[in-house]
C-alpha cells in the first residue's frame, strides 16, 4: 500500500463523465469501446490484468462509493457469484446480449428498422432517451450502436452499484465479463509456471498449474 497518488488513481471520474455525456448526446457512447478493447489488448499483449488492477474506472468508482463513502454494507459476496459456472455463464449471457445488439445495429444499417431512440435497462425495460439523439451526419446505424452500447454500459454499472451496496465495494469484479475474459486470456498465456518461480504443483497458491 503506497500513499502516493498517481494520475490513474483519479480514473474513477471517467464513469460519471461517460454516463453523463451519454445523457446529453448518445454518440459519446462510442467512447465506451475504449473500456471494451483496452483490457483485452493489455491481456493479449502480455500486460496481464493491469487494466483491472490499475486503470479500471468502474472498479475505482465502486471502491470510492463503497469504501470511502461507506455506501456498501461490506458483507461477503455470495459464494455462488464467484463460481466458474456463474462467471462463465454470465460472460456467455453478456456476449449473447452483445451480439443481439450488433444484430439490431445491422438491421438499422440495412434499412430494415429505424433507430430505436431508447435505452434498454437490464435487457428488458425500455427507457425513453430521445433527447440525447440530435441526428447524425453519419449513417443511422452509428446512433443505433451507440444506444445499444450505452444500454450495456448503464445496465452493467447499475448491477455493479447494486452488488456494491449489498455486498463488498468491488463485488462486481467477481463476475465482471471483461475481468473473466481477461483472466481467461491470462490463464491461457501463463501456462504452467516453471520450477524457478517456485511451483511445487497442486499447491493452489497461484493456479498456474490448473490444479
Amino acid at each position: 500500500m503506497n500513499g502516493r497518488k498517481h494520475w490513474y488513481d483519479y480514473l474513477w471520474i471517467v464513469t460519471p463523465v461517460y454516463l453523463g455525456l451519454g445523457f446529453f448526446n448518445i454518440l459519446f457512447a462510442w467512447l465506451g469501446m475504449i473500456f471494451f478493447c483496452l483490457p483485452l489488448l493489455i491481456a493479449i499483449f502480455g500486460g496481464g490484468k493491469l487494466y483491472c488492477n490499475r486503470y479500471c474506472d468502474r472498479g475505482q468508482f465502486l471502491s470510492l462509493l463503497g469504501g470511502r463513502l461507506k455506501l456498501s454494507r461490506n458483507r461477503p459476496t455470495p459464494r455462488w457469484m464467484g463460481t466458474r459456472a456463474f462467471r462463465y455463464g454470465f460472460l456467455i449471457f453478456f456476449f449473447l446480449m452483445f451480439f443481439q445488439m450488433l444484430w439490431t445495429t445491422f438491421l438499422v444499417g440495412a434499412g430494415a428498422r429505424s433507430v430505436g431512440e431508447f435505452v434498454k435497462l437490464f435487457w428488458t425495460f425500455r427507457l425513453p432517451w430521445h433527447w440525447a439523439y440530435h441526428g447524425t451526419l453519419l449513417a443511422p446505424w452509428v446512433a443505433q450502436f451507440a444506444f445499444g452500447f450505452y444500454s450495456i454500459m448503464l445496465t452493467s454499472t447499475l448491477i455493479g452499484l447494486i452488488v456494491m451496496a449489498l455486498f463488498k465495494p468491488r463485488s462486481w469484479c467477481v463476475f465482471c465479463p471483461m475481468g473473466t475474459m481477461t483472466q481467461l486470456i491470462c490463464r491461457l498465456r501463463a501456462g504452467r509456471p516453471p520450477e524457478e518461480e517456485g511451483c511445487s504443483g497442486g499447491c493452489a497458491v497461484c493456479g498456474g498449474c490448473g490444479e
Binding site: M1, L50, C52, N53, R170, C173, C176, C186, G208
Partner: peptide, 28 residues
C-alpha cells in the same frame, strides 16, 4: 490465496501495507 476463487482484481495488492501481495501474470 485460494487460486480457484481469485479473480485477480488486485484489490488485495492495493491494501497490503507491506507490499506482500502481487498479481501473478494476471491469473491470481
Amino acid at each position: 490465496v485460494e487460486a480457484r476463487r481469485c479473480v485477480a482484481c488486485g484489490c488485495c495488492v492495493k491494501v497490503c501495507p507491506l507490499s506482500a501481495v502481487g498479481v501473478w501474470r494476471g491469473v491470481t
